[in-house]
């Protein structure tokens, strides 16, 4: 993968992260509902956070051909 493509993906993920883990989208989860005993808001934030980390790992650890990638 070229550096440029990786950087663009990271930048896009960064934007998604800002939107997802910030107001006003954060208030969507603030509903008082519980999932398996855990309130939705903390569960959603931690799951969203984990997904962000997973996608980041996938983007940066992808094999690259050019070494500098």
């Amino acid at each position: 993968m070229s550096t440029s493509l990786r950087n663009q993906r990271l930048l896009a993920l960064f934007a998604v992260g800002w939107l997802l883990l910030n107001f006003p989208l954060l208030t969507l989860w603030d509903s008082g509902v519980s999932v398996a005993g855990i309130p939705l808001l903390p569960a959603a934030v931690f799951i969203g956070w984990g997904v962000l980390i997973g996608v980041a790992a996938w983007i940066v650890e992808a094999r690259d051909g050019d070494g500098d990638g």
Partner: peptide
């Protein structure tokens, strides 16, 4: 409540840009 979290979400977002 959850207001301790931005202190760690910020670094997470920053690290997304660590490579560039």
């Amino acid at each position: 409540g959850l207001w301790f979290l931005p202190i760690y979400l910020g670094p997470t977002l920053a690290m997304l840009l660590a490579w560039p």
